[in-house]
Design a protein around this nucleic acid. Structure first.
Lengths: 113, 113
DNA sequence: CAATCATGTCGATACTCATCGAACACTACG
DNA sequence: CGTAGTGTTCGATGAGTATCGACATGATTG
């Protein structure tokens, strides 16, 4: 029996630089990724709070989807919750140094929209 | 007498990660930057050709503007031409490793739109 | 089972953006 | 001075997207 895939993640071969950069180009998503990288696995609601994102749940769900479909995030189903985490291995394999550079940037340098 | 600024470039302190990522998130701009980094200084038309961008001159001018205002490109006036170059020093200073990661990515991994 | 919690999905809306052609400005060259 | 070359600016247009509220769905809990 194969592992059931609830939420589709792109495979390593399907990751594209332009797509990843576009996913990271939004300040809200950028903050979410940086928070998640710092805290480890988190469910959606907690991540949204930890990242200080004052947006609606549907909007956050949209951002989470963009990040997941770009290959930046992984979603693991845990009961009623989706545990989110950064796909560090995949990103490092496809774009060495990219995630590190993004995470190393000072918060003031991120930008606002 | 101060140096006349024909085309405004953002200073180091004004560079923002989200803005730079957004500028790099377009495949056409990504190809232009990578080509320019490989060739050194080039005028607009030659860069467009070298990058294999089959878009109108006005569209390329738009892309060049986005990259310049994000702090990715520098434009130097040389007679009737604008010599373009990558602001490697500024990018490395503000976002260490970011440009290297972008330039090190395999062409097939860039993505198309 | 009923209430609640955690998320996703849908449709609408407003805004941004990539693209083009046309017109303009400036330089170089005859 | 006129012509060609280089690049920008200006609307217009179509596609994409960030946002929301409302509803749906599955899990947890009392």
């Amino acid at each position: 029996m194969s592992t059931p895939i609830e939420t589709p993640h792109p495979s390593l071969a399907d990751l594209r630089l332009a797509t990843v950069l576009a996913a990271l180009a939004d300040p809200a998503r950028l903050r979410a990724v940086r928070t998640l990288a710092a805290t480890g696995e988190l469910p959606c609601t907690e991540l949204q709070q930890a990242a200080g994102l004052t947006i609606s749940r549907s909007t956050f769900s949209h951002h989470q989807r963009v990040l997941r479909e770009a290959g930046v995030l992984k979603a693991r189903v845990d009961g009623a919750r989706r545990m989110l985490s950064v796909r560090r291995d995949a990103l490092d394999a496809c774009f060495p140094g990219l995630l590190d550079a993004v995470l190393a940037t000072a918060p003031e340098r991120i930008g606002t929209r």
